[in-house]
Amino acid sequence: MKRFVIGAVSALVLGASAAGAADYPSKEIQGVIQWGAGGSTDTVMRSVTPHAEEALGGTVVMQNMTGGVGAIALNHVAGQAADGYTLLMGAENPLLYKVMGLGDKDYSDFTPISILARGTPILVANPDAPFDDYAGMMAYINDNPGELRMGATGPGGLPSVVTAMINTVEGKMDVISVPYDGDGPALTALQGGAIDVMPAVLGAAIEGIRAGKMKPLAIFDVAANDKLPEVPPVTDFNDAYNTYLPWGPFFGVFVKKGTPDDVVAKLADAYAKGAENPAFVELMDNRGFSMMGISGAEAEAFLSKWQQGTTWLLQDAGLTKASPEDFGIARP
């Protein structure tokens, strides 16, 4: 009896380690979501993963691991075995960790499975604000220096990048930057009049705009968006934005670098299929995200281009702790 038990257990253990990619996945896969339950990363991952599970023929158990602006989750996955059984489900900001002094790891320690979608930033204002478009806002700031309250979500967040872009293109704005811990709370404050202007991702603001609870000033893209065709792109006001746009936050699934290629291929294939699901596509469209669904070399190229552009933008705006140069990130 005893020998049987030992035999069975060792067979199980050996079986698991020797199985490799041929019958991957032979056990549950852990999906570590970098952000809290109910956030947009959480929603996106929980809605694409069931479709990917079908294609993969395995189970992905998702858990939220918050804290340290997502660095806790990233370091956790980086500390697991590179066997494809732990996925990192995250957003764009780890690419800024190094220059912001938030950690010494970023997506260069990971292999992208799929960059699912990209968001578009939009500048929105309280309906009572004394201006109706981007040009009006800039004129107001010039006439009333230090009076306009602009929402922010901490260094490295989308608003800080958009603000850095405006400062670089138009010269330094004299505004009050009021920090919130996410674009949801900040947009709530905007509707209550605690802040006047907020750079946010289109999907978070779209319903508020439709209801007239906030007014759009400009889309931070090179062309108008299908969802809000009447809102002008910021490049209509100033050509200089073409250098930095299109830019936007994104969502992606990653595994630790060193994961066997066939496992990566299998996962990439599953998530690509999952991202094509009509229900998921509709969800992303409703929230104003542009589908990407890229992987492999294309995804790597996208990541490094994103990192170059954004880190240097923040560096030039004086918002970084360390220069991108220190980490071998070349100026674009």
Binding site: A37, G38, G39, D42, T43, R46, S47, I206, E207, G208, R210, A211, K213, A279, E282, L283, N286, R287
Partner: peptide, 13 residues
């Protein structure tokens, strides 16, 4: 989030 996933658009509308 659940309402979003089920195809509704929670918001003021």
């Amino acid at each position: 989030g659940a309402l979003f996933i089920h195809g509704l658009n929670p918001g003021p509308m």
